[in-house]
Design a protein around this nucleic acid. Structure first.
Length: 574
RNA sequence: CGGGGCGUAGCGCAGUCCGGUAGCGCGCUUGGUUUGGGACCAAGAUGUCGCAGGUUCAAAUCCUGCCGCCCCGACCA
């Protein structure tokens, strides 16, 4: 396409309200414009990249045997009431009424609609397995939209849903999607990692998030330095301590210490002159209405998901002041395990401690030299804390590291949660009715594009991988008023078009510097510069955006050379 | 939902404290000189100062209410 005819409004200035580099560059490169909070338009350049990602997704989903459908964004309340999510989903679900006062919502996801679709049309095991997907606009009324298209309210998503007759089939469907996702993100040129995620009541390792490694990511990822173990923060396991690891120390007599107004770990640490690792926090949780005391080292954080899963609770939250007082006989800040009247569970780390400091269950008092077994007992030990850099790997006992990532995809085995609630059943070989087993698989399309920019940019702008580039090559005549230069540029442009390349001819009457800056900003992988001096020798310049490398090539050969690079780089990642 | 900030030309901002002709840079239009990394000169165009009400001879500026946007936090199947 001729640049002079393109709608490509680039900007020199960094938008003041754009926090992350991908958002800044997408605005500056004329890819997106914000309509209102969390809602964006894609301009031609941005939409081309979106379509590149969508196309890769389509090819890989189809290759994996999934079939594309398209479902409505507007969904009736009845379906959501049937699944139970009308009351459980919360404020992210945007609800509204039509002229007849019937209730609807904008689909944040499509489990209900797809399950409804499938239950009507699939009746027998002969029709299974079945995997349907769509690429469609979702709406989630996010509490706080931010980071441009990375966390917005209206966004494009590929969502797939698999239906299987049995567990073995469901696992196979899951694996197919897992493999397809690896192919998709590899083709997008991303440095990513599938990480284990919490699968709630489903259990096992049937939930993986695909994380693009980036400092600006909103999620923390734990991964092992030695083996390929990787998990998100919620899920990251910490192994039980090995035998004999307990420190051998003489147990000193327990003492009560007056600590008026000293509540937080930091305050206790300063007041008692002990490190936070010698203090044991006693947190009172409300688990489905019952108080539970959770013990954890002062320098660690409780992982509420782990506590919830360990207890098998459906609701878990920190207890309110009344429950704390009922459980400990003291106000918040003075809870301890000694003499407490409720069930006590403790993180493995507490096992190793001797002569520790804890609350006294008495307003204004703490205890020192407390010892497990002698002074209190623990009902059960478990892994209950948030993983930290340097913790042992649960698989190989190597050390784990913590890094930031952007979640671009998620594969999840749903089990029968929706098929049960909505009665998606089939008849098996024996004519018995059985519930289908489901899986769901999502990819954030816009977020994938933003994540790609987070990983591939420099101070001049975006550096697209060949596979996602909106155009793969730009022809830049240094001066359009020189007839020879323009003629050669037109010829190269026509040659590239004829060869099927996605090419821009920068035919604007601008100075070379302006054209170079724009080409760098919008990140076109290859740039062919046609200037009078080189052309006099029959040559043009080929500049590679990624490396900055530039070489002179005979004008007659340039089309073939460019096409060769384009096709090899498209293959390479494919 | 709590805390903070902002709203003035297409974009980025000054002007608001202390009321009195609405400004600067970039961009845009026209003409000329330039032409390999965001050129220069000259002449121009562009505003319900977020909205509504109030005070005043007079409001971008003071007062009240509302709306929008951003940041931090809380929240997040």
């Amino acid at each position: 396409m001729r640049y002079s005819e393109m709608h490509l409004p680039t900007g020199r200035e960094i938008p003041s309200d754009a926090e992350v580099v991908s958002n800044q560059l997408m605005i500056r490169a004329g890819m997106i414009r914000k309509l209102t909070s969390g809602i964006y338009s894609y301009l031609p350049l941005g939409y081309r990249v979106i379509r590149k990602v969508e196309q890769i997704i389509r090819e890989e989903m189809n290759r994996a045997g999934a079939q594309e459908v398209h479902m409505p964004m507007v969904q009736p309340a009845e379906l959501w009431q049937e699944s139970g999510r009308w009351t459980h989903y919360g404020k992210e679900l945007l609800r509204f009424r039509d002229r007849n006062d019937r209730e609807y919502c904008l689909g944040p996801t499509h489990e209900e609609v797809i399950t409804d679709l499938v239950r009507h049309d699939i009746k027998t095991y002969r029709q299974l397995p079945c995997n349907l997907y769509q690429i469609q606009t979702k709406f989630r009324d996010e509490v706080r939209p931010r980071f441009g298209v990375m966390r917005c309210r209206e966004f494009g998503m590929k969502d797939a849903y698999s239906f299987d007759a049995d567990e073995a089939g469901a696992e196979k469907s899951y694996e197919k999607m897992f493999d397809a996702y690896n192919r998709i993100f590899r083709r997008c040129g991303l440095n990513f990692r599938p990480v284990e995620a919490d699968s709630g009541s489903i259990g096992g390792s049937f939930s993986h998030e695909f994380m693009v490694m980036a400092e600006s990511g909103e999620d923390s990822v734990v991964f092992c330095e030695k083996c390929d173990y990787a998990a998100n923060m919620e899920k990251a396991e910490i192994p039980a301590p090995q035998e004999g690891a307990t420190e051998q120390k003489e147990a000193l007599p327990m003492q009560s210490v007056e600590t008026p107004g000293v509540r937080t770990i930091e305050e206790v640490s300063t007041f008692m002159e002990v490190g936070p690792e010698q203090i044991v926090k006693t947190l009172i949780f409300n688990a489905d209405g019952k108080p539970v005391a959770v013990l954890i080292r002062g320098d660690h954080e409780v992982n509420e998901i782990k506590v919830k899963n360990y207890l098998g609770a459906t609701q878990l939250e920190l207890a309110d002041d009344d429950m704390i007082f009922a459980a400990t006989g003291a106000p918040r800040g003075f809870a301890g395990a000694v003499g407490i009247k409720v069930r006590v569970i403790a993180d493995y780390c507490v096992m190793n401690l001797a002569n520790l400091v804890t609350g006294a269950n008495r307003d204004g008092y703490h205890l020192k030299n407390v010892n497990i077994g002698r002074d209190f007992n623990v009902a059960s030990w478990a892994d209950l804390r948030v993983a930290q850099q340097g913790d042992p790997c649960p698989r190989c006992r190597g050390r784990v590291r913590v890094a930031r990532g952007i979640e671009v995809g998620h594969v999840f085995k749903l089990g029968t949660k929706y098929s049960q609630a909505m009665k998606a059943a089939y008849l098996d070989k024996d004519g018995k009715e059985k519930i289908m087993i489901m899986g769901c698989y999502g990819i954030g399309v816009g977020r994938t594009v933003a994540a790609c920019i987070e990983q591939h940019h420099d101070r001049d702008g975006i550096i697209w991988p060949m596979t996602l580039a909106p155009y793969t090559v730009i022809v830049t005549p240094v001066n359009i008023n020189e007839a020879d230069v323009m003629k050669a540029s037109e010829d190269i442009y026509a040659g590239l078009l004829a060869a099927g390349a996605e090419v821009i001819l920068d035919d604007r009457d601008e100075r070379a510097g302006v054209k170079f800056k724009d080409a760098d900003l919008i990140g076109i992988p290859l740039r062919i510069v046609v200037g009078a001096r080189n052309l006099a020798q029959g040559k043009v310049e080929l500049k590679i955006r990624k490396t900055g490398e530039s070489r002179l090539i005979a004008a007659d050969d340039i089309v073939a050379r460019a096409v060769e690079i384009i096709s090899s780089e498209t293959q390479e990642t494919g």
